[in-house]
Simulated scan of single mutants.
Amino acid sequence: MRPWNSIPITEVDEPLQKIPTALLRLEPHPYAALGAPYGPDASPFRLRQGVVTRLLQAQQELQKEQPGWSLAIFDAWRPVAVQRFMVRHSLVAECGRIGINPDHPSPERDRAEAAVGRFWAPPSDDPATPPPHSTGAAVDLTLADAGGQALAMGGEIDAIGRVSEPLFHQAAALADSSSPAAVWHQRRQLLARVMAGAGFEQHPNEWWHFSWGDQLWAWRSGAREAFYGRVGDSASSRLS
Score class of each variant (00 low, 15 high):
M1A: 14
R2A: 15
W4L: 10
N5P: 02
I7L: 13
D13E: 13
P15F: 08
T21C: 02
L23Q: 05
L23V: 03
L24T: 11
L26P: 00
L26D: 12
E27Q: 13
H29K: 06
Y31P: 01
Y31Q: 13
A32R: 14
A32P: 02
L34C: 04
L34H: 02
G35I: 03
Y38K: 10
G39Y: 06
P44L: 10
F45R: 07
R48T: 07
V51F: 03
V52H: 01
T53A: 14
T53D: 14
L55K: 03
L56M: 14
Q57K: 06
Q57F: 00
Q57Y: 01
E65Q: 15
E65Y: 05
P67I: 09
G68I: 12
F74I: 14
D75E: 15
R78S: 09
V80F: 04
V82R: 06
V87S: 14
S90Y: 12
E94S: 12
E94N: 08
E94W: 02
R97T: 11
G99L: 11
I100C: 08
P102I: 11
D103F: 05
D103S: 06
D103R: 01
S106P: 08
P107N: 02
R109Q: 15
D110L: 12
R111V: 07
A115Y: 02
V116R: 03
P123S: 08
S124T: 05
D125F: 05
P127G: 07
A128K: 12
P131N: 11
A137P: 00
A137R: 03
A138D: 09
L143Y: 06
L143E: 11
A144R: 05
A144E: 10
A146W: 02
G147D: 15
Q149N: 15
A150D: 04
L151G: 03
M153E: 03
G155Q: 07
G155M: 06
I160M: 12
G161Y: 11
S164L: 12
S164P: 03
S164E: 14
S164C: 14
E165A: 14
P166Y: 05
S179P: 05
P180A: 08
A182M: 10
A182K: 03
W184G: 01
W184C: 01
L191Y: 01
A192T: 07
G197Q: 09
G199L: 08
W207Q: 04
H209A: 04
F210A: 00
W212R: 13
G213H: 04
Q215D: 11
L216T: 06
W217G: 07
S221H: 11
E225S: 15
A226K: 07
F227K: 10
G229N: 12
G229K: 03
V231R: 12
S234G: 07
S236Q: 13
S240F: 08
